[in-house]
Nucleic acid binder design. Structure first.
Length: 275
DNA sequence: ACTTATTCCTGCGTGC
DNA sequence: TGCACGCAGGAATAAG
């Protein structure tokens, strides 16, 4: 489940490798991803050079010298790996990008919820997938005042609010559960019942868990790996996600971790520590 | 304007 | 061993 730390891990992995490299060829093996790959995508990117690689929300953005941006979303099971040649194609390799100096990236995505598109860099922020994106959680603008303002008067559970990309980007099911545990807030608590103190703790927890996970290369639960193919390590540091029935990690607590479904998503929390 | 349900897809675990 | 089934979930979209 690629969330902000997993996407950032991929960006960190490909950035130094493909920067200033020329795209020789874009090869697609299947066009039916979440959105069909544009028919003219290859002609819009081939023979241009990479100028910048960065992340916005859960998107990977590769800016090109021809004033276009190549945008990739990993969906749920999307992976990007770097290989030396393109001879070995995996079962779910859906496209590959061949750069000069024998550098190749492959996009592997069994569930095909990922997608790629190219757009003019100047209009990227106005693109329908970008125009409604909320604030980046790791910048100063995301603070307790911002979150409190978002949560006030809302009748939906706090977990849904922090996972909603129009308010805060990059937080998905894993890190929402983790951050709520770290701040002692029950995932079902309604937005309107979040206090200033809760907001302070939750903001701190979100920033902290995302940063720690990035440092360890993200969480390799089902599909995510680093671009080298190596697993991330943060799955071993999770407090509640996927730990139904296990004991709370807090020594003084030891209560069982509970799984409930909120808005069709598994949510994990400690029955004692979170209210 | 907000809230909730539905939809896409394949691999994996479970039960008969 | 094989098959049916449910589940995993990001987020646009439709529906309420």
């Amino acid at each position: 489940m690629p969330e902000l730390p997993e996407v950032q891990t991929v960006v960190n992995g490909i950035k130094s490798k493909i920067n200033k490299h020329k795209i020789l060829r874009f090869k697609k093996y299947i066009s039916k991803l979440r959105y069909p790959i544009q028919k003219n995508l290859s002609s819009k990117v081939e023979s241009s050079t990479v100028t910048t690689v960065f992340r916005r929300a859960k998107y990977i953005i590769i800016n090109l010298s021809n004033n276009r941006s190549l945008v990739i979303h990993l969906g749920m099971s999307g992976r990007i790996i770097i290989v030396k040649n393109n001879k070995k194609k995996f079962k779910h390799t859906h496209f590959s990008i061949l750069f000069n100096k024998n550098l190749v990236i492959q996009f592997i995505d069994p569930r095909r919820f990922g997608y790629i598109f190219v757009t003019e860099t100047a209009s990227l922020e106005k693109h329908r997938f970008f125009v409604n994106l909320g604030v980046e959680p790791l910048i100063g603008q995301f603070n307790d005042r911002y979150l409190l303002n978002v949560t006030k008067n809302k009748k939906s559970p706090i977990k849904n609010i922090i996972m909603n990309q129009k308010y805060i980007v990059g937080v998905g099911n894993i890190y929402a559960s983790e951050a709520l545990f770290m701040s002692g807030i029950h995932p079902s608590r309604l937005g309107k019942d979040i206090t200033k103190r809760d907001s302070e703790k939750l903001v701190r927890a979100i920033k902290s868990v995302l940063k720690k996970s990035i440092k360890l290369g993200g969480s390799s639960i089902n599909d995510h790996t680093m671009v080298s193919g190596k697993m991330g390590y943060f799955q071993n540091k999770l407090y509640v996600y996927g730990r139904e029935g296990s004991k709370c990690v807090k020594r003084s607590c030891q209560s069982p971790i509970i799984r409930i479904v909120i808005a069709q998503r598994s949510s994990f929390y400690c029955s004692e520590c979170q209210r």
